[in-house]
Amino acid sequence: MAARTGSSSRAFPPNWAARAAWLAFVVYFFYAASHLELTPARFMAGLEHGGKFVTRLFPPDFHRWQLLAKGMIESLQIAVLASALGVLISAPLALCAARNLMPAWATWPARAVMVLCRSFHPVIVAILFVKAVGFGALAGILALTVASVGFLGKLMTEAIEEISLKQVEAVRATGAPFMSVVTYAVVPQVFSRFVGFVSYETDANLRNSTMVGIVGAGGIGGTLFSAFQRFDYDFVCAIVLTIIALIMIGEVLTARVKKAFGV
């Protein structure tokens, strides 16, 4: 064999494929930026606007707190009910989709439902439900339920597929019917993980429930959108601050719940 020469003996050989990928990405970056007409001039003009905008945000105006409270409570209701419905639907669906417990004819349809639920943004789903059940909280609840089923279903399926089958086998060996196998061999193994997923999804639903109102599906989003359209920026500031506070409280609460269940 020839002695090792030149580049092959270098300790850190240049990775040409990676460099080409980076170069291609930089080219794309400038192409996309020009496509979107992102120019420094426009940006500077925006910053000037931004200064005025920020001064109009403050001080936040909490005078119409009743309207604010009504919207926030509706958002909370949407988040709570969507999470509850989401769990009710996704838990059995995840059981159907778990490949280690169910035959293929059951897993494929269940998985297809989950993919379909996940593929559209909650706002788009909310628009379709606004058409179906009219303006108001119900459309928001249903839209976020669909999103929860897609997300929880996927995570729960993965959790069920990771369980130890020894306990399942042991319970089956006693001649237990299917529901007993689920109750005594599957649920104890996945319960604490499910609690973690559900609290995460409740957080996510709380965030999204402040948004679906923009398309008329109930909650604080509608109030926020109309405040924006009326250039009522100090009220906008009050709403956004309240949303941030609510979501932070929600995160603290779900962290406590996770701790209580040892997730």
Partner: peptide, 17 residues
């Protein structure tokens, strides 16, 4: 994270058009 993408978008539409 707490401010949703759409709410951020409302802000930036107000600023940058």
């Amino acid at each position: 994270r707490s401010v949703n993408t759409l709410i951020w978008a409302l802000f930036f539409v107000a600023v940058f058009g």
